[in-house]
């Protein structure tokens, strides 16, 4: 199947190094989230993979070949870069017909992807009358035209309504489930955590992380335990936990928070000490926390990049 391999990729725009020695691989059969703040180099990397921009050095290949060397690119890679790029004066259907013709894709596929993305009813309207959400759906339709082995989608959920986001999540999971390679950039953490199995995180043009979503969260967040005992036993609980190296913090209404602990650590401790347990909850960190912890280590984030890349 088609993997996307980025090796030591660097792109400079004048004095600005938008992508800096980037190496990662996007594997088939899973959804890979592509994360990073604005200006981290996500869109530039996607353009480099698609052969639209020429790298200063390094390579990006799709199934082992540079994108420009692919014989039938539409059947190998479907891409959505910018929903605003579809020409406003053309109808949605004509836009797809133009792309289908170039990729030698049968015309009936146009109707299929229009149905699939839920914009068949608007297909004969001019694109300039489309909402952002409809343009996104049209862009996704265009990406799916050639029934491609790999998909590159840049912020596809931008402008989608909640229903659309749920639809997109299902679609991405389904495409990956069929064994396709799916790379989806986003800056929304909660959303990405819901559909991505794997994450590639950029910061300042470089690679910050390339790991499974769960593993990344585990590595970059601290689990917590929230618990409550009777009011009378508060001090005994504090003494017990402190003795075992924890730093419990008393919050409102007698609830305690213990960072760096799991229920499997705290529960047995309390039981052995004979402390009544009124509440005991473990909390896993979120992707957002992991991301913030991860990016806090990268000084480039402090400086604003001069252009959105």
């Amino acid at each position: 199947m088609t993997s996307i391999d980025v090796a030591d990729l660097t792109k400079e725009y004048g004095p600005v190094r938008a992508v800096d020695g980037l190496t990662f691989a996007v594997r088939p059969g899973r959804v890979t989230g592509f994360l990073g703040p604005n200006g981290a180099g996500k869109s530039t990397t996607l353009r480099l993979i698609l052969g639209l921009d020429r790298p200063t050095s390094g390579t990006a290949t799709v199934g082992g070949l540079p994108y420009r060397a692919l014989d039938e690119p539409a059947r190998r890679v479907g891409a959505l870069l910018d929903p605003g790029a579809a020409p406003g004066s053309r109808t949605g259907r004509d836009h797809l017909r133009v792309l289908a013709a170039a990729g030698r894709i049968p015309a009936r596929r146009v109707a299929e992807v229009l149905e699939l993305t839920g914009i068949a009813g608007a297909a004969d309207r001019r694109i300039r009358s489309f909402s952002l959400g409809m343009r996104q759906r049209l862009g996704i339709a265009a990406a799916l035209l050639g029934d491609p082995e790999a998909l590159l989608l840049d912020e596809p959920s931008n402008g989608l309504d909640p229903e659309g986001i749920i639809w997109l999540r299902g679609l991405l999971r389904e495409l990956a489930g069929e064994g396709r390679t799916v790379l989806v950039s986003s800056h929304l953490m909660g959303e990405t955590a819901e559909f991505a199995d794997h994450l590639v995180v950029l910061g300042g043009g470089g690679l910050l992380a390339d790991a499974g979503t769960g593993a990344l969260i585990e590595a970059w967040t601290t689990p917590r335990v929230r618990l409550r005992t009777t009011e009378a036993e508060g001090e005994r609980l504090r003494a017990l936990l402190t003795e075992h190296g924890y730093a419990p913090v008393l919050a409102a209404e007698g609830r305690w928070t213990v960072r760096g602990a799991r229920v499997t650590d705290i529960g047995p401790l309390m039981a052995r000490a004979g402390l009544p347990v009124l509440e005991l909850t473990g909390e896993q960190g979120t992707l957002e926390e992991a991301y913030l912890a991860l990016t806090a280590g990268a000084p480039e984030f402090a400086a604003a990049h001069p252009r959105e890349v």
Binding site: R47, L50, G51, L52, Y67, R68, L70, P73, A74, A79, L81, D82, G84, A85, A86, P87, G88, S89, L99, A102, G103, A142
Partner: peptide
């Protein structure tokens, strides 16, 4: 000129990279 409005060229060159 249609290709140079709003990034249309990127769509075209993604479809026809040569």
């Amino acid at each position: 000129a249609g290709e140079y409005r709003g990034g249309a060229l990127r769509v075209s060159l993604t479809a026809v990279p040569r």
